[in-house]
């Protein structure tokens, strides 16, 4: 069981965005997609989510091709946290999270409890009644995460793993909440689910990822264990700035910019 992309070619408008990307995201692991701005991370994640259809290539979720899968069925297999979200009406946090339950059967009381649990899980236990528009950027991001979480709350259903596809889940969060959210993702994987997260913070990637895809210019530069991919030379080349990768006892890999200049 895994989330597999093979030779994905993607075109948006008149631009070719992805030029033959492969990814094998194993279940029970956190897979990180890293790479510079515009390298195609979001585009790949959107393709994995079934949101945009590649020109060619195959994507299989737990062994099933996602092309042509009905939306409500797909929704039972994976939840998606987009990079950006704009809400058009004054919904409360709880009402936003409830939208994540659109394709989930269940009675009112259970669903209410689930919404409360999800908000607590992202560290917003007292915020159910707050208007989304009046929350801070980081709080909004965590409400959206809770909305994705309730959709696939149990990591395994009928023996099949479910997937969280997260596009920069910690981009607006303070350091404590970054760690809390990454632990949530790691815990989801440990309980048998799958997680694919687009990441910009390479240190968090080093701490939490079990599998890493490094992208540049719509291509995969490297895929493998963090120890192989988080490599000084490879990263310096990919990002175009000098990076030094070191080891910190117990925390694992640790990266520092080489200097304040490029």
């Amino acid at each position: 069981m895994s989330l597999i992309a093979r030779d994905i070619h993607l075109r948006l408008g008149r631009t070719d965005i992805l030029h033959g990307v492969d990814l094998t995201a194993p279940v029970g692991r956190v897979t990180a997609i890293i790479g510079p701005n515009g390298s195609g991370k979001t585009s790949l994640l959107r393709a994995l989510a079934g949101e945009i259809v590649p020109v060619s290539g195959r994507i299989a979720l737990n062994g099933l091709p996602i092309v042509g899968m009905r939306p409500e069925v797909l929704a039972g297999h994976r939840a998606v946290l987009p990079q950006q979200s704009a809400i058009s009406f004054p919904f409360t946090a709880a009402e936003i999270v409830r939208i994540g339950l659109t394709s989930v059967a269940g009675d009112q009381i259970r669903q209410g409890a689930l919404i409360g649990e999800a908000l607590a899980a992202v560290g917003l236990p007292g915020h159910a009644g707050r208007l989304y528009q009046e929350l801070s950027g980081g709080e909004q991001q965590r409400v959206q995460l809770a909305r994705a979480l309730v959709q696939v709350w149990q990591p395994v259903v009928d023996g099949a793993p479910r997937w969280l596809l997260l596009d920069e889940p910690v981009s607006s969060l303070d350091i404590a909440h970054q760690i809390a959210v990454m632990r949530l993702a790691a815990d989801y994987a440990r309980r048998g689910g799958g997680v694919v997260a687009v990441m910009h913070d390479l240190n968090l990637t080093g701490m939490f990822a079990d599998h890493v895809l490094l992208m540049r210019g719509g291509r995969a530069m490297a895929e493998g264990a963090p120890a192989e991919v988080l490599d000084s030379a490879l990263l310096s080349d990919a990002y175009g700035c000098r990076l030094r990768v070191g080891e910190v006892p117990r925390a694992g890999v640790w990266l520092l910019p080489h200097s304040a200049t490029l």
Partner: peptide, 16 residues
């Protein structure tokens, strides 16, 4: 309700 999140997110939660 789902559309309020945008079309992409509405599709993600399983709406046609």
């Amino acid at each position: 309700n789902g559309l309020a999140l945008g079309e992409a997110a509405a599709a993600h939660v399983g709406l046609r």
